[in-house]
Amino acid sequence: MNFEFLPKYYNFFIQGTKYTILISFFSVLLGIVFGTILSLMRISNNKILKMISTSYIEFMRGTPLMVQLFIIYYGLDVSSIVGGGFGDIISGIITLSLNSGAYVAEIIRSGIQAVDKGQMEAARSLGMPYNMAMRYIIYPQAFKNILPALVNEFIVVIKESSIVSIIGIHELMYNADTVRGVTFRAFEPLIIAALIYFLLTTSLSKVLSKLEGRLRVSD
């Protein structure tokens, strides 16, 4: 092990981490938005919405993320639409969030369906309309149920964001690989990258498990 390259190249890791955080943050955020919409379509009584959502989810889960990334980046040629050098980052965020949305949708759907049927019946028997029962009774319970799975999905997004290095985004993985190239040392820069990813994912799960603990007061 030789980390003598670090004083000279540490900034690569810092800049890379910034981009990784930026991309992951927006991907998770948009993933939740897509996922929520998709899950509502999936549990709705409208057959067409249901079918669109179901096929979308199946397709996103059944095809490789890298293929999806190339379709968005080369196929849709986002760079030529957006310009200003943001095209690749936006392609990355769009792909990750479209992909994550499919998983989030399934998590939300299973969380809603896991709430005991009697809860809806009790709410309806009191005279609550369906939407009100969902809002006050079903969603709060579903949210608590799905939080662990959701945290897991966020962690997956952070890790999978490394794949966007392939379209030349200077995030953590890309920059670690750059350092590997210029220093002719493979092991150390990649170990540093791995440690930074590990730090990001564990601190995220720590923060969110605190939130989970707070939601558990009613148990």
Binding site: D116, S125, G127
Partner: peptide
């Protein structure tokens, strides 16, 4: 039906209290 149900209380075998509320 919602306004009708407001006038008909129901009690279930499995209680069905809302666990997210006191």
């Amino acid at each position: 039906i919602n306004s009708i149900r407001q006038r008909m209380g129901m009690v279930f075998q499995s209680f069905n209290l809302f666990p997210n509320m006191n």
